[in-house]
Amino acid sequence: MPRIAIIGAAHPHVDYVLDELTRADRAAFELVGVQDSDPAVAAHHAARFGVPAFDRAEDLLAEGVDVAVIAGVYGARGADAVAALRAGAHVLADKPLCTSLAELDEIEAVASEVDRTVNLLLEKRGYPETLAALDVVRAGELGDIVGVTSSGPHKLNRAQRPGWFFDPAQYGGILTDLSVHDLDAALLFAPADEGVIRGAVSAPLDGAQGFTRYGSATLTTPNTVVSAEVSWLTPQASDVHGDYRLRLVGTRGTAEIFWARGRVEVTTDDQPTRALDLPPGRRPAEEALDAFADGRTPEVGTRDSLAPTRLALLAQASADQGGTALAWSRPAD
């Protein structure tokens, strides 16, 4: 029976895993305990499952853990991931995995050293719209994908955010945080192993020095140009938290993904614009927990978790350096 521990629960995305564990078909998993630097946060989630709450990650990891779920304060996640790996656990993490390139390098090295996997909860991969568009791309209907443009706006809801969220040392920057999903989607639709990335940010927030509300990342690979914009600028009166969108431009057609609207439109040289039928989606932690239960590596394993994380961190580093072009490449398998 796989033993799961929550190492950091400050972000609501921890519920991706906790809600999954409440399902009857997840009885094969044992939740060992919940840890967070805020005792009240740990106690809240622990009480829901009748398990112990821990103040220190090392104390919980000492209980013997097969899978460590990392969902705490962003600035603590890198160290938590390394500690979990060294304790012999696979890592299942909310994004961002960490907030610095040095931390990512250490995570990559330790994961290889101890032969454990790092797995990000990249929930957009399981959305019905993504799955429908991916079928069209893989069938070759759009030809070669040469351009990917995405928009990821969010409501800031400032009054509801904890103080650490506006601390650059703990938050890591808007591109570190928000661009991971769309950069991952770009690599899903247009696979690449190398490229050049640039980042830019704007719209500083009054009273929160170093916190910006708009960012863009531009990735150029040998075959595709990717542009991902993200923001904390969704208008408060909007009917959605974020009107997330992605446009694919191919040599034989285009696809428009409207994630927030539940719609995908495809136009090709052979067919006029049509809306795709959407398949069932997947819950954010569903596939990963299925994989752990079966004793296999989740679909989003170490290689596919580290790539968009590194791209996002490089984009943030580029923005911090005034838009300097930075090289990116995946390590060989």
Rank of each mutant, 00 (worst) to 15 (best):
P2S: 13
I6G: 01
A10K: 00
A10F: 00
V17E: 06
V17P: 06
D25I: 06
F29Q: 02
V41M: 13
A43C: 03
H45M: 09
A47R: 13
A57W: 00
A57F: 05
D59S: 06
A62W: 07
G64L: 09
V65F: 09
D66S: 08
V67P: 01
V73A: 04
G75T: 01
A87Y: 03
A87S: 15
G88E: 04
H90A: 10
L92H: 05
A93Y: 03
A93R: 04
A93D: 02
K95C: 06
P96M: 12
L97W: 08
C98F: 10
S100F: 08
S100L: 10
L101E: 03
E103Q: 14
R116V: 02
E123T: 11
E123S: 15
K124R: 15
G126I: 01
Y127D: 13
Y127E: 14
L134Y: 09
D135A: 14
G143E: 07
S150D: 07
G152A: 14
H154D: 15
K155V: 11
A159F: 03
P162C: 06
P162H: 11
W164R: 09
D177V: 08
L178I: 00
A185L: 15
A185H: 00
F189H: 04
F189P: 00
D193M: 07
R198H: 06
G210K: 11
G210T: 11
A217D: 10
P222L: 12
V225K: 15
V226E: 05
S227E: 13
E229W: 11
S231L: 04
L233D: 12
S238N: 04
D239G: 12
V240C: 11
L246Q: 12
L246F: 08
G250Y: 08
I257R: 04
G262N: 09
R263Y: 06
T267C: 06
T267K: 11
D269C: 02
D270N: 12
P280Y: 02
P284S: 11
D290E: 15
F292R: 00
E299A: 14
R310W: 08
A312F: 05
A312D: 05
L313I: 11
A315S: 01
A317N: 04
Q321K: 12
G322Y: 06
T324Y: 05
A325W: 10
W328A: 05
S329L: 03
S329G: 04
